[in-house]
Amino acid sequence: MTADVHAERAATSRRPGLAALRGRNNEGVLAGVILLLLLVMLVVEPSALTWGFAGDIIRSGLVTLALALGLLLIIISGGMDVSFTAIAVFSGYATVRLMTDLGIDGRVWPFLLAAAIGCALGSLNAVLVARYRMETLIASLGTQVIIRGFLLAFVGSTYLATLPPQLDSVGTTTIFRLGSSPVNIVVVPVALACVALALILRRTMFGRGVYAVGGDKESARRVGFHVARVQTGIYLLAGLFAGFAGMVHVVLSRHASPFDLVGMELNVIAAVVIGGALDRGGRGSVHGTVLGVLLVSLVQNSLVRLGISSYWHVLVIGLVILVGVAIQARSNARGAKRPRILEEVTP
């Protein structure tokens, strides 16, 4: 009797083939939506689907993706962050400012310096969240304003129209061309950052701690995680990714402006959430986030190709975000779905 009950339970909780395709955080559903959109484009505007189109999507999604990585960590741990754009712009701008003022130049080390500055700024969030246990969103609202204010008041508020030549050359180096669209070399470090974060999340105890804290903080404490230590790691690492993203933005836009990026938070948050990381925490993956960024970027570029006025873009992106988040929230409610009880009466 008991054995039957258990066998039955095991059978119902095992995921059948089709459901397995969906992925743990609905990544499969997202991939399906992207394919569907491409199909629609194929019918409506077949001439638009070129390699160049793919190149455009990659280029426009790179900065969003770089910014999304740090945020992903925070959201998995059950937090929310709006300070990452401020950290990014501070790190990118301050690095270029330093290079210009001191007359030094380089290709790789500016990325590392920006990441280090980002890490230092991330420690602000780390202290507020891990040490003083502040609500993450509130803490980051504060740090966003502080970091941006500090940047404008002490580092500089002038637009730097040209980058030092070597750094600028990174922005013009293409590794290959997709049709008519050049693919910039920074796709390589961004891809490496993605792989690194995926490894951290899936293969390290720290990564498991991030999911554990996001799943249930008290339980994490009880199995022996140092929650504050895990949180400190999360915010330092998130700052590091944001700083790196700031430099990616500077290099790709080939200028440094202290007024960039801030205001872009919602796009990035949307990409991460559509990618399967829910604000409740404990969920999300790097490949989901990559798909989320891809979807947002695809929609934006499709609108351009379809010749739709840019005034409409904001509205459409807004709708995509709403629908994407709604789908995620809905299919996540499956956990709350009641199991079947009623026994069929065979006539």
């Binding site: 554990a212 799943g215 249930d216 994490a220 199995v223 925490g281 404990g282 969920r283 956990g335």
Partner: peptide
């Protein structure tokens, strides 16, 4: 409360 991780 069992202190498990529902997401894992």
């Amino acid at each position: 409360d069992m202190s498990l991780f529902p997401n894992l």
